[in-house]
Write a protein that binds this DNA or RNA. Structure first.
Lengths: 299, 299
DNA sequence: TTGAAAGCGCTAACAC
DNA sequence: GTGTTAGCGCTTTCAA
C-alpha cells in the first residue's frame, strides 16, 4: 500500500471512529480468536490465579478469553460449554473439569481443541502437576518428621480425576511406608468435628488442596486443638495466602504460571497448527514449601 | 409453525449436530448478548467474588460474560476495553476502574452502556458501597475502643475515585472527632516498616481494603509487633478469608452479591430499555463486622 | 404456514 | 498498487 493512501485511510479511521466488527470478521474467517476457559470456582484463589495467568498469556498472543465459572456445580458445565461453542471459540481450556465424558466426547466430535489444565483425560491435551510426586513429597516430609498416624482431607468440589489421583497417591505413599491407612481418617473439611472427638486422632493431615487445608486448620483450632502442636497440616497448590505469617502453611506448590503458559501454548498450537496430532500430555514437577504448619508429633 | 414440521426440524438439528452461529446472529441483529467485565485484579478475593457473582447474574439473563483482567496495570485498560468493543459487547461493567476520563468519554461517545461497580463516576450508572459511611463505622469503632492515634493504609493499586473517597472519609472522620491527622501515619502496606521504627506509632490502622489490611497485619507481626496488642487493624470489603480464626479481621463488609446483582440489573436495563435516561447511582450500606483484630489500646 | 431474498460488515480472490 | 465482488450464517421482510 502506498504511504499516502495509508495516511489517508488512517485519517478517515480516526475521524469516523471506525472500529472493525469482530463478528463480521469471525463469520468470514471461521475463526474468532476467542478461547473459552471453564473454571470450577473463581472464589478459590488457585483457580483465580490460573485464570488470570491464562488470560495474560492468551492476550499476549492476541486471543480474547471467555471465562465461564461453574461454581463447582457440574450441571452448569454442559450449558456453559454449549454457550462457548455457540460463540465459536477456537479452543477451550478446562480447569478443574468434572470429568463428564459425554461433554468431552462431544467436544472431540466437534473437533474443538481442548486443553485440560490441572486435571487429566487420556484423549486430550493436558498440562498438570504430577499429583503422585506431590503427595509423595508431602508424606515424605511428614514421615521424616516422625508422623505415623496421617489422615487425608478431601475436597468434594474438586474435579474427579485429580481428586482420585491425589487420594490414590496418598494411599500408595502410606502403604509403601507400611503406615496404617485408616478409612475414618479420610474426611472432608466439613467433617473435621468427627475427627476431633475420636479416640485416636491422626497427628498429621494431608489435604487435597490449600483451600481445604486452611479450612481444616481453622476447624481443628475452632475445636480447641493446635496446629502444628496437636496436628500437623500439609496443603497442595501453593496459593499466596499460605505464605502469610498467620497461616504459614506447609504445602506442595504447583508452578501455576508454568501450567498456564503451557496450557495456552498447547491450545494455540493445536488451533493454529491443526488437530490431528496425538494428545500432548505434560506433567510438571511440584515442590515442597515448608512453613510452620508442620512439626514433629508430640509423643 | 406446525407441529409436524417442528419435529422434523428438531430431528434434523440433532442429526446434523446443528449449532447456531453466534457471530452470524450478532452481525445481523447488531446485538451480541455479550457483556464485558473489566476487573482490576482477579488475585484479589473481593474482585474475584464480584466477577463470579456478576457472571452468575448475567448468565441468568442469557448474557455471556467477557472477563478482562488488567492486573492493576492502567496501561492495559484501554486496549482491553478496545478489544471488548471490537467484540461489540452490549455493555461493560467496570470494577475498580482506574478512572481514566479519556476511555470513559470514548465509551460514552460510542453510546455503549457502562456500569461502574464499586467505583464511581458522575456521568455513568454506578453501584457502590457508601465509602464515607463505611469509614465512619470503622473510626467510630476504633474511637469507641479508646483509640486516638489512628493511621491509614493505602492501596496504590486501588481505583482512584474510591481511593480518594475512602481517604477523605478517613480524614473527615478524624477531624470531626478532633483526632490528630498525622501525614506520616498514612502509608502503603509496603511501607509499614517505617511506621514500626517511628518514635510515635499509631495504636490503630484503618486500611483501604481487606487485602491491604491483611498485608499490614502481616508486616507488623513480621516486624515483631502484635495485633491487636500493639496495633488494632480494621479492613474494608469483607472477604471470606477475614473470617478465618487465624486472621479474624475486623472489617467494614460490603454487600458483594447485592452490588453484583444491582450492577447487572442496571446494565441490562440500560441495554434493553435504551440509553437516554439520566445516570442511576446506587449507594449501598456497609456493615461493621467486629472480630479479634481490634481491641482497646494498651496504655 | 412456508419459501425466497436481501443484507449485516468483513475478507479473500481476482481483475484492473 | 488498487478497486470490485462473492459469500460467511443468520434474521427479517415480503411474497406466495
Amino acid at each position: 500500500v502506498s504511504d499516502a493512501t495509508r495516511r489517508r485511510v488512517q485519517e478517515a479511521v480516526t475521524q469516523l471512529g471506525y472500529r472493525p466488527n469482530a463478528a463480521a470478521r469471525n463469520l468470514v474467517q471461521r475463526r474468532t480468536n476467542l478461547i473459552g476457559v471453564v473454571v470450577g470456582d473463581l472464589a478459590n484463589a488457585f483457580d483465580a490465579e490460573l485464570v488470570k495467568s491464562i488470560e495474560q498469556h492468551a492476550s499476549g498472543r492476541r486471543y480474547t478469553t471467555l471465562v465461564s465459572n461453574t461454581g463447582g456445580r457440574a450441571e452448569l458445565e454442559t450449558p456453559r460449554i454449549e454457550a462457548l461453542l455457540e460463540q465459536r471459540v477456537d479452543g477451550i481450556a478446562l480447569l478443574d473439569f468434572s470429568g463428564d465424558r459425554a461433554v468431552l466426547s462431544e467436544l472431540m466430535a466437534e473437533r474443538v481443541p481442548v486443553v485440560m489444565v490441572s486435571c487429566w483425560a487420556d484423549y486430550a491435551d493436558c498440562v498438570a502437576v504430577d499429583d503422585f510426586a506431590g503427595i509423595e513429597l508431602a508424606i515424605e516430609h511428614l514421615a521424616g518428621l516422625g508422623h505415623r498416624r496421617i489422615g487425608y482431607a478431601l475436597d468434594p468440589l474438586m474435579e474427579a480425576s485429580t481428586r482420585r489421583a491425589r487420594q490414590q497417591a496418598f494411599e500408595r505413599a502410606m502403604l509403601r511406608r507400611s503406615l496404617d491407612l485408616r478409612p475414618e481418617w479420610t474426611i472432608e473439611a466439613a467433617g473435621i468435628g468427627a475427627l476431633v472427638e475420636a479416640d485416636e486422632r491422626p497427628t498429621a493431615m494431608t489435604a487435597a488442596n490449600d483451600y481445604t487445608a486452611i479450612r481444616v486448620m481453622d476447624g481443628l483450632e475452632t475445636a480447641g486443638l493446635t496446629v502444628p502442636g496437636d496436628v500437623s497440616i500439609v496443603g497442595f497448590d501453593g496459593i499466596a495466602l499460605g505464605a502469610l505469617g498467620r497461616i504459614a502453611l506447609t504445602t506442595v506448590a504447583q508452578p501455576g504460571d508454568a501450567l498456564a503458559a503451557g496450557a495456552v501454548e498447547l491450545l494455540l498450537d493445536r488451533i493454529e497448527r491443526g488437530h490431528d496430532a496425538p494428545p500432548v500430555q505434560q506433567r510438571l514437577s511440584p515442590s515442597l514449601v515448608v512453613r510452620r504448619s508442620t512439626a514433629p508429633p508430640r509423643e
